[in-house]
């Protein structure tokens, strides 16, 4: 019986460690743009013109919107989670979903995410 208890405990710990460890997210379209300087630049330009005005600043400043270049995410930090948050918004906040309004469609949003990734702090 002791063996059964020990095995159960170890399996639980293993599952917890796997689930809470660094996410092994599948490659996204943003990854494809990471090596495309023009794409990252377009993502940067959209971020500067659309996200950074009074909300998500380029440097960590005292504002009431989260800083997006660290490793802390309120609504999921995977590429797909970021994509979903930007597209759908966050209810009861002033983060309105951008839907399909990007000038060049989803590609533009993946380029914004590529810009975020290319400037993100190294996360341990």
């Amino acid at each position: 019986m002791q063996l059964l208890k020990t095995l159960s405990l170890l399996s639980c710990i293993a599952v917890i460690l796997i689930s809470c460890g660094p996410a092994s997210e599948p490659p996204s379209k943003a990854d494809e743009y990471l090596t495309d300087a023009a794409a990252v630049q377009r993502g940067r330009s959209i971020f500067v013109g659309t996200c950074a005005g009074y909300c998500h600043r380029l440097t960590p400043e005292v504002v009431d919107a989260v800083y997006l270049f660290d490793c802390e995410w309120k609504h999921g930090g995977s590429d797909q989670a970021i994509f979903n948050t930007v597209t759908n918004g966050v209810p009861n906040t002033r983060m309105i979903g951008f839907g399909t309004n990007f000038p060049e469609g989803e590609d533009d949003l993946w380029k914004v995410i590529a810009f975020l990734k290319s400037n993100r702090a190294a996360c341990s």
Partner: peptide, 21 residues
């Protein structure tokens, strides 16, 4: 003062850039 691409979505910020202190 930094310029960027602006995109209008009703209810969202529409600033086209940002000032940098």
């Amino acid at each position: 003062m930094q310029k960027g691409l602006s995109m209008f979505v009703e209810g969202q910020m529409f600033t086209g850039g940002l000032p940098i202190p």
